[in-house]
Every structure is written in C-alpha cells, then in structure tokens.
C-alpha cells in the first residue's frame, strides 16, 4: 500500500523544506516580537491577513507588480503595527497575559474590519506566470513559487540576522532584551526599541501575507490557521531566532514525512502531540532567548 521509492522520499523531504520555509516566514515576525518584548501577539495571524489584503489591493486597484507588492506590504503592515503598539500594546508590557487578550481583541477587530470592507468572498493574488511553472530536481518536481518562498525565507533570515547583529539598532534591541532597566540607564530608549521591534515584526507578517495570499486564497479568516502553528514554532524554538529556524525545519520535515505515511490532517495532529511531549521534557524550548523569562 505504502509506496516508498527513492524519488517519493526525496519528494517528501523537499516538500518538507517548503513547509518549513512557510512555517518560518509565518513565525519570524512573531519570534522577534516575543523574543524582544515578551509580547504574545495573537493578532499576528491578522497581520499576515492584512499583508495579503494589502498586496491584493495594490495589485488589483493600483496595478503594482507582484514583486513590488511584497516590500510595500511590509511597509503597510509595519505602519499598522506601529499604530497598534503606540495606542494599545505599550500600556500592557508588564501584563503578559493581558497583552495576549488585548491582541486577541485587536485580531477580532482587524478580521471583522477587513470583512466589512472587502466582504467574505475569497480574493486572489496573481503571481507572474513564469512563477507557476514547475521545475524538476532529478525525479522531483516542485513549483517555482515554492522555491521562491524558500529563497525569501533565507533572505529574511539573513536580513534579520544582519539587522540584529551588525547594526546599532540591533545592539540596542539585544541590550533591551537582556535587561531593560540596565539598557535604559545607558541611555537607550527602550520603549522606542519596543515600538520599532513591534513594527518590524508586523512588517515581516505583511511579507508572509503577500506570499501566503498566492499559495492559498485570501480570506478575512486566513490568519487563524497560521497563528497557532507560528506560535508553536516560537514556543518550541524557545523564543530565539535560531530556535525558531530549527523548530520550523524539524517540524516542517516531520509533518511532510508523517503526511507521506498517513495523511495531512493526521500529520498535523501527530506533530502537535509530539510538541506537547517535547515541551514536557524541555519546557524552555530548544534554545531559549536571552534575558529573564516569566
């Protein structure tokens, strides 16, 4: 019944890389926000959804080419994130459970607001036609767009790494992450760092949205599906950048292999259960972020 050939196993592994890159793109912004400010941003899925709608709007009403939509979605969602941080999140930093609830409220408002503006019917983002071709790697064929998503994931990791470890801003962020009061006493404006980090994380969700809008249909509720998985990556990874990368890679591959053996939904269930068991033995995650965790 189970047809395990060399080609099909390689196919599952490559598909796993693709799933991993999607997990990673979804979880990257969340990791940055959680790792730096300790904010559980339940509206992250809706930021992804906003990114998709921003791309859809720019492409359909303004005729912006798809590749330009991606950075523009980053800007649009980053600005929205900035506004939300300034008007709400900044008052809740010392109440982690309340940020979770408040951002859930934000996600309700965003989801319903988009539904009122755009309606509940599915929208589609067009990609350049050459992107829909399949390319063959040996016996395995995979759509060029999935390769593109993988490339974007790598590029984003590089960009975030450069920003955090090679710039002045990154030094400030890491200082604030390790010890907020100490950083403040050295003249770093920590609340400004939080704001910028939140906007950055939201912007990354915007990029994720413009990519996922092509992979799937664009719906007001599309964010819900991503947020739980993205959070699992962050929790399993321990809140650090490297942890999220490893967690996404391992879970992506695991899910692809289980899906190959059983089926898609059962694979998802199995991965979730394995994560629960993993956290029983390593509750701090793979690589826990620096600084104090509560």
């Amino acid at each position: 019944m189970l047809d395990i050939t060399f080609a099909s196993s390689i196919n599952a592994l490559i598909l796993g890389l693709s799933i991993a890159s999607i997990f990673l793109v979804a979880a990257l912004g969340l990791t940055i926000i959680y790792g730096t400010a300790g904010v559980i941003n339940m509206a992250h899925g809706e930021f992804i959804m906003l990114g998709a709608y921003a791309s859809f709007t720019m492409q359909n009403y303004l005729g912006v080419p798809f590749f330009l939509c991606i950075p523009l979605s980053f800007l649009v969602v980053a600005v929205i994130g900035l506004i939300i941080e300034r008007s709400l999140i900044q008052y809740l930093y010392n109440r982690p459970l309340d940020t979770l609830l408040a951002t859930w409220g934000v996600s309700l408002v965003l989801m319903q607001g988009v539904r009122l503006i755009f309606g509940s019917d599915p929208k589609y983002i067009q990609m350049p036609s050459f992107m829909s071709t399949n390319i063959a790697i040996g016996d395995v064929s995979i759509s060029l767009f999935r390769v593109f998503v993988f490339a974007v994931a790598i590029a984003l990791i590089g960009a975030v790494w450069w920003l955090f470890y090679r710039t002045d801003f990154g030094i400030k962020v890491r200082a604030v992450t390790q010890n907020k009061e100490m950083a403040a006493s050295f003249g770093i404006n920590s609340s400004r760092v939080y704001t910028m980090t939140f906007a950055l994380g939201a912007g990354l969700a915007g990029i994720a949205g413009s990519l996922f809008g092509v992979l799937n249909i664009v719906l007001p509720t599309m964010g819900m599906g991503y947020v739980v998985e993205a959070f699992l990556m962050v929790v399993t990874g321990g809140g650090s950048l490297l942890g999220t990368i490893i967690a996404s890679g391992v879970t992506g591959e695991a899910q692809s292999i289980f899906a190959f053996i059983f089926n898609d939904t059962f694979a998802r269930f199995l991965v979730f259960i394995l994560i629960v068991i993993f956290l029983r033995f390593r509750p701090q995650g793979l690589i826990s972020a620096g600084g104090v965790r509560r």
Partner: peptide
C-alpha cells in the same frame, strides 16, 4: 502562563 495558553490552543 502564556505558554500554557498557547499549548491549550494548539
């Protein structure tokens, strides 16, 4: 705390 909340959600 928040981690447990996320796990129940998952």
């Amino acid at each position: 705390g928040p981690f447990f909340a996320i796990m129940t959600l998952a």
